[in-house]
Design a binder for these strands. Structure first.
Lengths: 194, 194
DNA sequence: TTTGGCATGTAATCCGTTACATGATTAG
DNA sequence: CTAATCATGTAACGGATTACATGCCAAA
């Protein structure tokens, strides 16, 4: 069986032959916003792929420690193509943010606000980041045949982030309205004037 | 150590005492769009929570097999409150859809279209579902103190789904434009008329 | 009578991160 | 000299799903 991590590796190797170390770097820069891979996953997977004849390895001696450069083999290309054509399986969602908002005490509006605000700020940061990457791609790789696809995935992230900002702003208004309705959570030393 | 699954359980038990089986059902209906739990996770976690004194168990004999009803203990409530106030940790994203779009052959626009279209349809379905749930909640639980929070989490899902629809529509246009630019992938028996 | 829902649980397995181990090279 | 980066790997652990095992009751 071939896992999605292994297919991700095969995909990366269609860009160019590279080492496990380079892969990790490239993942972080290019597909980091929708995919992650750790060394603990990469190196064993590369061994498996080599054993299965889907990639080939050669050593490149450099000034530092020798690199092990992997290339995708014809069999690997074929398997990858088949996989790419299959309908992607949706990953099960798991949002601690929503879990916390769902279960917080209704009266504890301040904590709800804090969480929503933090989420909004994160989304805004992401938005900036996406804009920056898109710029850079268009400038430096404007001729690459896969540029459109890269921009598609970036756009996905952008739309998602924009949605989170809108949601957060809307939710903050709701929370404000709630706080207006019951101004004070009845502290012990208040309401004495009455 | 207490995991997020265990906190989810504690959260559920603030709604009402219930059995592991009921939890599974309730999760699927209420927080299913942002959280999942399986029996293989629930039952062992309940044991752990009971051993830690965070929940209490009693048997309820009914007409069917005896149910084991769990309630949240004061210590559990306290731990939960602390956890709810901590900033939620974002889950690492992993989207097979984007991975496939990223690595597909640039010329293979039909497959890209298929994936994007399927994603759009799924998002539209979700949208309907969210609308239905929101209606139902407002109608049947219009008085519940946590209604606003439930609607917040639903709204999150709605915004995300709307964003996916927008993204898909935009992307489909891009793909159409690409297909226009190179009308035919040069099939063997075409262009003969020339 | 047999299917499906109620009900609890365990075992196998997968997928993934983190920490650890090692060691060379380079920049400050 | 020392911290960071390059570079490869393993081991431990964690978190979660799936499949399996069991069995009762109700409805078709």
């Amino acid at each position: 069986m071939t896992t999605s991590t292994e297919f991700a590796i095969l995909g990366l190797l269609t860009l160019k032959p590279m080492s496990g170390y380079e892969m990790r770097q490239l993942v972080a820069q290019s597909i980091g916003h929708f995919w992650g891979e750790s060394y603990g996953q990469l190196y064993p997977s590369l061994k498996k792929l080599e054993a299965a004849g889907l990639v080939s390895k050669r050593a490149e001696e450099g000034t530092r420690r020798d690199k092990l450069i992997y290339s995708i083999a014809p069999a690997g290309r074929e398997k990858l193509q088949q996989w790419l054509a299959q309908p992607p399986k949706p990953q099960p969602p798991r949002s601690e943010l929503l879990l916390k908002l769902f279960f917080l005490t209704p009266g504890d509006v301040p904590t709800q606000r804090r969480h929503v605000l933090a989420a909004r700020d994160r989304a805004i940061e992401e938005l900036k980041h996406f804009g920056y990457i898109a710029e850079k791609l268009r400038a430096e790789r404007g001729d690459h045949p896969q540029l459109q696809q890269w921009l598609m995935t970036l756009n996905f992230g952008r739309h998602q982030a924009e949605a989170r900002v809108r949601w957060a702003e809307e939710t903050l208004e709701t929370l404000d309205a709630i706080e207006q309705r019951k101004p004070e959570p009845a502290l012990a030393n208040e309401g004495e004037a009455q």
